[in-house]
Design a protein around this nucleic acid. Structure first.
Lengths: 193, 193
DNA sequence: CTATTACGGTACGCCGCGTACCCTATAAGG
DNA sequence: CCTTATAGGGTACGCGGCGTACCGTAATAG
C-alpha cells in the first residue's frame, strides 16, 4: 500500500513525535515505544539513527527549543540584568524548561551527554550576551572596566541555576531575582572598581 | 536454626549493605535485590521500612556521611573562604561525593526527595559557617558590616555547585576556586561598603 | 529489471522495581 | 509454658522499559 516514508522525512517525523512526547510527559516519561508508535514507525528506525534514548531526547529537545536569545537594552545595567534573569526564569519554569531540567538531571552523571547539552543549549551565547551588557555599562561609565569579566558575567545565571537545583522546582519568585541583582550582581560590579 | 535478626539489628544490616552498594556502584547502580542479598535478607524486609528505592538511598547516604562541618579560621577572609571551598571541593569530588551527586540527580524532579536531601546534607550548617566567617571579617574591619548577608554568604558555594553541574563531573580545578574567591567573592564583599 | 537498502511488524531477552504468598522463627501475654 | 500475633525468609511473579534480532516488503539505485 503505497507511500512508505524514508530518510529525511521519516527522521523529521520521529523527531516531532519525540518532541511531542517530551512536551507531554517530560524526558523521564518519554518511552521509545511510544515515540515509535506516535511517529507511525517502529523502534528499529529510531535506533538506526540514535543509539540511545538520551541521544534522541537531546535531539528532540532541539526541535522544541529554538529560543531566540534575548538581548535587552533598557539603558541601565540593573534593568538589563533583571530583564535577562526574568526571561531566563520564565523559560526555565515553562513546561519547556521542565523538559530541559529533566534532561539535565538525566545527563548529570554522563559527561558525554552533558557536553552535547551544552552545545545545544546556547550557554555560550548567553554568556556573550551578559558580557555585552557589561561592556555597554562600562561604555556608559556605569561600571568599571574591570567588571567586564567572564566570572562576573556568568555569576547571575549560575546563581539562578543553583536556585532551581535547591528548590523543589517550578519557579523562582521574582524577589529572588531582584535580590540576585541588587545584593550580589551590582555590588560585585561596583566592588571591582 | 537459631538466630534470625529482627528490628533494629536487621535495619542496621540493611542500611550498611545499602551504604556499601552506594559506595561501590553509586546510587544508579544500587539495586534492591543486591542490597537484600548483601544484607542476607530479602526485599520484603526492606520495603516494610522504606517504601521506595530513593528513600532507602537517602537513608543509606546518611550512614556514609557524618561529615564534620569545617570551620576554618585562618585570620583572613580570603584564607577562610578558600579553605571552605577547598574542603567542599574535596568532599564533592570524593567517591562519596559521587554518590551525593547521583542522589541529587535522581531527586532533581522529585521535590519531596529534594527536601529530604537538604535536611540531611547540612546545607544550613554550611550557610551558618559562611556567615560566621563574614562576621569575624567584619569584626576585624576586613569587611563592611553590610557584607554580612545571606546572599553573600551562599554565593561561593552556589557557584561551586553550578560549576559541578556544568562540567562533566569529577573535580573542579583549584584555579577555579581561587577565581571564585578573588574575582567574585572578595570584590562582592568590597562592593557592599 | 535486478540488487541493495531501509522500513514495518513483531517478538524476544534482560533487568529492575515493587507485590503477593506461604511458611517459620521470635516475641508478647496470658 | 503454651498460644497468638508479628516480622523475617524464600520465592515467584507481574509489569514496564530498553535494546536487539528476524523476516518479509516497499523504495531506490544502477
Amino acid at each position: 500500500m503505497g507511500t512508505r516514508r524514508r530518510g529525511e522525512e521519516l527522521e523529521q517525523a520521529i523527531l516531532q513525535a519525540a518532541a511531542a512526547e517530551l512536551r507531554e510527559s517530560g524526558y523521564a516519561g518519554m518511552t521509545m515505544d511510544r515515540v515509535a508508535a506516535r511517529a507511525g514507525t517502529n523502534k528499529n528506525a529510531i535506533y538506526r539513527r540514535w543509539p540511545r534514548r538520551a541521544a534522541l531526547g537531546i535531539a528532540a529537545y532541539r526541535q522544541l527549543s529554538d529560543a531566540a536569545m534575548p538581548n535587552p537594552d533598557t539603558g541601565t545595567l540593573r534593568g538589563d540584568a533583571l530583564e535577562m534573569l526574568r526571561q531566563a526564569n520564565e523559560t526555565w519554569s515553562s513546561p519547556h524548561g521542565a523538559v530541559l531540567r529533566g534532561l539535565l538531571a538525566a545527563a548529570a552523571d554522563d559527561p558525554e551527554l552533558l557536553t552535547l547539552m551544552r552545545e545545544r543549549s546556547g550557554a555560550d551565547t548567553m554568556d556573550r550576551a551578559w558580557l555585552g551588557m557589561l561592556e555597554r555599562a562600562a561604555a556608559r561609565g556605569e561600571a568599571p572596566a574591570a567588571a567586564v569579566h567572564h566570572r562576573v558575567a556568568t555569576t547571575p545565571m549560575m546563581l539562578l541555576r543553583a536556585e532551581y537545583a535547591m528548590r523543589g522546582i517550578p519557579s523562582v519568585p521574582d524577589e529572588v531575582l531582584v535580590e540576585i541583582v541588587d545584593e550580589v550582581f551590582l555590588p560585585l560590579v561596583r566592588g571591582r572598581g
